[in-house]
């Protein structure tokens, strides 16, 4: 098989909800598109999917039709304004939140079959549910999003620990989101990195930070992607930096 057509699968995860996984995923995807890559985003937050809401779109088909219908993932892919393609999930369908193991396997297998993209970003749900772990396992790189709240740090650490102890994962990348200044981001990263080295025995990788910015709230209200709406903002620069680091990871 042609290895060039195999997409690089990256999951965006956190442990805690509300730290900005979906924000990071959409903006990172849009940034990577601007850097000339073909990107697919899969909304893997099966219980409370919200990428479609964030982008202000109302997809006809979603992941539910794949799980309970006879469709392939390819059939539900839709293009977005950000230039990347999206596999939307369904929000609020109770059965989706606790999918059977075999159903998850089916989705995972289908994701691996998809070709024609440089990268696939998986936006996972919050918490340490089996579904989340399985999607993290599928991805060759896990991005763990943290912010300056202590609970986000402990939950992120719990995620790293579980992925390590259950599946032997030892490579994680940290993004510090919504932080007041550059130094704070580095300090937060250093804190969790020290703990990981000490208790788990391996270092964490730092992808970079996304600063606090009014542009985020403004674009969120208008259901737009921040880096598209404000291409000259500080956070657009942050995302370009992170995008380049992700592409470096892919090469190595």
């Amino acid at each position: 098989m042609n290895t060039k057509s195999k997409p690089f699968i990256v999951s965006v995860t956190s442990g805690k909800g509300g730290v900005g996984k979906t924000f990071i995923t959409t903006n990172l995807a849009a940034t990577l598109v601007r850097q000339g890559k073909k990107v697919l985003v899969a909304d893997c937050d099966l219980g409370l999917a919200n990428i479609d809401i964030m982008l202000g779109i109302n997809p006809q088909l979603n992941l539910k039709d794949v799980v309970f219908g006879n469709l392939h993932l390819r059939d539900v892919i839709i293009p977005t304004e950000g230039g990347f393609d999206l596999i939307p999930a369904s929000s609020g369908v109770r059965e989706m939140a606790q999918l059977l193991f075999e159903k998850i396997q089916i989705i995972k297998d289908m994701l691996l079959e998809i070709e024609g993209y440089d990268l696939i970003l998986l936006d996972t749900g919050a918490g340490i549910a089996e579904v989340v772990l399985q999607f993290n396992l599928l991805a060759s790189q896990n991005i763990v999003v943290i912010n300056k709240e202590l609970t986000s740090l402990t939950d992120a650490y719990a995620m790293v620990k579980v992925m390590y102890q259950v599946f032997g994962r030892q490579s994680f990348s940290i993004i510090a989101n919504n932080i007041p200044n550059e130094k704070d981001g580095l300090n937060i990263y250093k804190n969790i990195d020290t703990i990981s080295r000490r208790f788990l025995g391996f270092p964490l990788n730092y992808l970079g930070h996304v600063l606090q910015d009014d542009a985020v709230a403004k674009s969120m209200l208008k259901q737009e992607i921040a880096v598209m709406r404000f291409p000259r903002s500080r956070i657009a620069a942050n995302f370009s930096q992170i995008g380049r680091t992700v592409l470096d990871l892919r090469k190595s």
Partner: peptide, 8 residues
């Protein structure tokens, strides 16, 4: 059934 706070 494991959620973040339980996981922590």
């Amino acid at each position: 059934s494991l959620h973040a706070h339980e996981a922590e």
